[in-house]
């Protein structure tokens, strides 16, 4: 049979190799992997974007700040989104939307850099985000509405005799939101990057 003499032949032919989580310094830290490293890099980029928006460079005050305009445009886009979707007089939940959007966007875009790592292509990360947001949203609902939070289980106008059946179906669909939310993001990123690597391998 064929005998590969290359030391790491897997690294040249496997399009799924880019999703491996590697421990960078196993002797020093157990938890420091390429995933956490790139995640901290993403958070640094996020912090830089916010800092550059709040404190623009004073020496070039006549020229517009490119980063600031970019972040401000994203802010206004998300503000209109929140205005149209969340029917509250005060948009108190806007900051979490802004933070999640920028974090996922930066993670996706940093993943496009060759030899980088796409944090959102690992299921544990997207699942954690979706689960944490779902738990937090439900805690807010329980805090504000107490037991009447379970009103989502029975839509208005449904016949009372069908209520147990509808409640069961609604509960299943309600909890499958976590999986639909996380698997959509993870599968899109993973499929896209695998396809890119395969297409690049043809050249």
């Amino acid at each position: 049979m064929t005998n590969f003499t290359l030391p790491n032949a897997k690294h040249y032919f496997d399009p799924l190799e880019q999703f491996d989580v590697i421990q960078l310094f196993p002797s020093i830290s157990y938890a420091l992997t390429n995933l956490t490293l790139i995640l901290f890099l993403n958070l640094l980029i996020f912090g830089f974007l916010i800092y550059a928006t709040i404190y623009p460079n004073q020496s070039h005050s006549t020229s517009p700040s490119v980063v600031g305009d970019l972040v401000r445009n994203v802010y206004e886009m998300l503000a209109t989104l929140a205005e149209s979707n969340i029917r509250l007089s005060k948009q108190v939940y806007f900051p979490i939307l802004f933070y999640i959007f920028l974090l996922i966007l930066i993670s996706n875009l940093v993943g496009m850099i060759p030899f980088s790592y796409t944090v959102t292509s690992s299921f544990v990360f997207t699942f954690y985000i979706a689960l944490a947001l779902f738990t937090g949203i439900n805690l807010i609902g329980i805090y504000q509405h107490a037991y009447s939070i379970f009103a989502f289980g029975v839509p208005t106008g449904s016949p009372l005799i069908l209520a147990p059946l509808i409640a069961a179906v609604e509960f299943i669909s309600y909890f499958s939101r976590i999986f639909s939310l996380s698997i959509r993001l993870f599968a899109n990123m993973m499929a896209g990057h695998t396809l890119l690597k395969i297409l690049i391998g043809f050249s």
């Binding site: 929140a82 029917r87 896209g192």
Partner: peptide, 30 residues
Amino acid sequence: MGLEFVIAMLQAYVFVVLISLYINDVVVLH
């Protein structure tokens, strides 16, 4: 390659839209 950038932005947008819908579901009960 360009498609991948579009997907990257679209997925972040979709995620935020769905989260805002879920927040609306819970905060504004019918």
